[in-house]
Design a protein around this nucleic acid. Structure first.
Ligand code: ZN
Ligand code: ZN
Ligand code: ZN
Ligand code: ZN
Lengths: 137, 137
DNA sequence: TTTTGGTATGTAATAACATAACATGTTTTG
DNA sequence: CAAAACATGTTATGTTATTACATACCAAAA
């Protein structure tokens, strides 16, 4: 399996984004968890190596990673997951198991097709679109 | 237009849910705003008539209203909207205008079909499905 | 009618999540 | 190098949500 960190290095090299050690460390922590991670959990993990880490430290790193397309925010959980396909167009659907917390990311929501992972049983869906209404366009 | 509060009364009468004065008041406040409302805004509005209102007061009322299918939580905004069709099956999609804050709720979430309101331009979508994965079923 | 059980609300405290504002350091670029 | 741009450190505070326990209320059972 292609390493998420190497992909991130490549992607950032291409786009000019600066994947600093701190940001890379946060990405590593998010990617290593195979479940959505909370910001303050990341913070306490960073703290083990860098006592100066404070909330803005981790939120800024996460903002960078999200902008770079390396991490997604899971809105209904206030948590974060690493994107398995860094740099894709980014209309991603997440399938989150409420038992084991595993997240499957599906891309390219083509109308009509159902991209639901095999065997996944959906209990609740969050579907929110943000943009401009006809009046405000 | 049929009154949301009357619909709520009817629905609760049918299901046996107890739409108490406090809950009805919160629903009224959510319904009157024609935009997503924050819990603490509701709280301060309740406070004008009921000085004893505290955070659990409004969160409990909102939980009830959500369970009853009268209100939806807008996950990416930490806010709440009244459901225009109380009691529908409830896989709702929300289209939120980032300029005027108007929310359009569309139902019948066949993930394939596109129910986008006419003229709405989507900039960002939040699509999260919660349930059980194949391993955990 | 008293007791009991269930549901709703009151109340205090705190947990959990997130950002503002400003200072300091580090890298890039002209 | 110097200036500008970017990144991080630091303090404080703002915002959102829950826990835990007490009290009130209502209706059925004893
Ligand atoms: Zn992705
Ligand atoms: Zn699972
Ligand atoms: Zn609805
Ligand atoms: Zn609008």
């Amino acid at each position: 399996m292609p390493d998420i960190l190497e992909d991130a290095d490549r992607l950032c090299a291409k786009t000019g984004a600066r994947l600093t050690p701190l940001r890379r460390r946060v990405l590593e922590l998010v990617a290593r968890a195979n479940a959505p991670v909370k910001a303050y959990d990341l913070l306490s993990q960073i703290d083990r190596t860098n006592t100066s880490a404070k909330p803005p430290t981790v939120y800024r790193a996460l903002d960078f990673l999200i902008d770079a397309g390396l991490v997604h925010r899971v809105e209904a959980l206030n948590a974060f997951v690493a994107c398995p396909q860094a740099g894709h167009g980014h209309a991603a659907m997440l399938y989150v198991c409420e038992n084991c917390a595993n997240v499957t990311e599906v891309q390219g929501a083509r109308p009509g097709q159902d991209h639901k992972p095999d065997g996944f049983t959906v209990k609740r869906s969050v579907i929110e679109h943000y943009g401009l209404c006809a009046n405000c366009l």
